[in-house]
């Protein structure tokens, strides 16, 4: 299955698409992408996770890293997450800090 990631920079927002299995072996790629998009200082970070089949805590730690790197003023959106991956986000309390949406709708 593996893992793949793509990044798109837009006006004031950055979109990262995560596909496959995000484990500790794959997390450094995600972290690198965050570091790259953070340089443009977007106001919104949009993570498309509809095709993410697996996510370990290594992926959660990159989300924490993103928040701490980009600052509390940047809105984090997790879009399309479902099933057990969504369950992990909620169990870990991330729904308090990110917008969980089916379809991206800026708040």
């Amino acid at each position: 299955m593996g893992f793949s990631i793509s990044v798109e920079d837009g006006q004031g927002e950055a979109t990262i698409t995560l596909t496959g299995e995000l484990d500790a072996a794959a997390a450094p790629q995600f972290k690198e992408a965050i570091e790259k998009v953070a340089e443009a200082k977007p106001q919104r970070l949009i993570l498309l996770m509809g095709e993410l089949e697996f996510m370990a805590s290594a992926g959660l730690r990159v989300l924490i890293f993103a928040r701490q790197k980009m600052g509390a003023g940047v809105s984090l959106y997790v879009i399309g997450s479902r099933g057990p991956v969504l369950n992990t986000l909620k169990m870990s309390g991330f729904h308090h800090s990110v917008y969980l949406q089916d379809v991206y709708t800026p708040e």
Binding site: S57, A58, R61, L63, I64, R67, Q68, L76, G93, S97
Partner: peptide, 12 residues
């Protein structure tokens, strides 16, 4: 806790 105040460890 909000993510900006999270400690990294123990989640796994």
């Amino acid at each position: 806790r909000p993510l900006e105040d999270r400690r990294i460890g123990g989640l796994g």
